[in-house]
């Protein structure tokens, strides 16, 4: 395969892992995070430390990529647990602002750790391995199965209840704080894994990669795909990762169009591509059944109106 196309596919697959996590947090639990790039950064740095072969003055343990993925994900999960302990009780967009603060703080900490290159970045000293596409695909499948099964389980239904009406969920006896925490940690682990894969893909990491723009990009993909839809997130990650490449023809104007496109989506189709719908056999049957029911209802209403006029 063309290595350029392969590169875009790998990047889309990596974004998808992080997006799935954020989709669980935002689309199914109703919590908005502007700090997921921070969790990606933790994953990337821990993963790089575990996998890079020790050479010259660069630190590293030279372990296989699998260890890096597990370690990076776990590190991001632990940090998110600590973050959740202190921020999950915040209301409204204050949680959103707190995650923004944490994301930026994590980035600035890495900016100041000279051992890992500080703000100059950390060349990981390896070349990109095209075979890693299979690793990425495998992680994607695992992540999709994890999130899809989670939202269908009792735990997932509790999260959806919190999204719909937090107070009512609490009154029904759902431990709101605990399920928010499960959702946050799961999504952070996935973000961390995505960070490890991104470092492996870029073979160079730099705190700047994980800035507020990256967090925003992830949120935009989730919203574009549609809140509360896993297939929407998959489609969104594929399309929006490819979009800047398609727009590359416009060179420096492409981010101008991207910004305009974001506003356009927000004001014209806020439910995203597939908000609340799933492109699975069962999901499609459900969409079609709902459409038929609506048509039947409309036909009946029309008949009644005719009957009334007679």
């Amino acid at each position: 395969m063309d290595s350029y196309i392969l590169g875009i596919l790998m990047l889309a697959g990596i974004n998808l892992v992080a997006v799935l996590g954020l989709s669980l947090l935002t689309g199914f639990t109703g919590l908005f995070s502007f700090g997921h790039a921070g969790f990606m950064a933790i994953g990337a740095y821990v993963g790089a430390f575990l996998t890079v072969s020790p050479a010259r003055d660069v630190p590293g343990l030279g372990l296989p990529l699998v260890v890096g993925i597990l370690g990076g994900g776990a590190a991001a999960g632990i940090v998110s647990w600590l973050v959740g302990r202190i921020t999950l009780n915040l209301k409204g967009d204050y949680f959103c602002i707190a995650t923004l603060g944490f994301g930026e703080a994590i980035r600035l900490v890495f900016n100041n750790v000279q051992r890992f290159g500080g703000s100059r970045g950390w060349p990981l000293g390896a070349t990109r391995n095209p075979q890693d596409i299979w690793v990425i695909l495998l992680v994607d499948v695992v992540a999709i199965l994890l999130v899809a099964n989670l939202v269908r389980s009792r735990h997932g239904r509790n999260m959806i209840a919190i999204r719909e009406e937090e107070l009512a969920a609490q009154v029904t006896g759902i431990n709101v704080f605990r399920y928010k925490m499960v959702s946050l940690v799961t999504s952070a682990v996935l973000a961390g894994v995505a960070g490890v894969l991104l470092g492996d893909y870029l073979t160079f990491i730099n705190p700047k990669i994980f800035n507020l723009t990256k967090s925003t990009e992830l949120i935009i993909i989730v919203i574009f795909g549609g809140l509360g839809s896993i297939s929407g997130s998959v489609l969104g990650a594929l399309l929006l990762t490819a979009l800047p490449e398609v727009l590359r023809f416009f060179e420096i104007w492409r981010l101008v169009f991207y910004g305009a496109a974001v506003i356009l989506i927000m004001i014209s189709r806020p439910q995203g591509l597939l908000g609340g719908m799933e492109l699975t056999p069962a999901g499609i049957r459900k969409i079609l059944a709902e459409r038929r029911a609506r048509q039947a209802l409309r036909a009946e209403a029309a008949r009644e109106a005719e009957g009334g006029s007679r």
Binding site: T213, G259, V262, I263, M266, I267
Partner: peptide, 11 residues
Amino acid sequence: IISAMGASMFL
């Protein structure tokens, strides 16, 4: 907020 970020990116 997302719309605002889009506007900021645009400007």
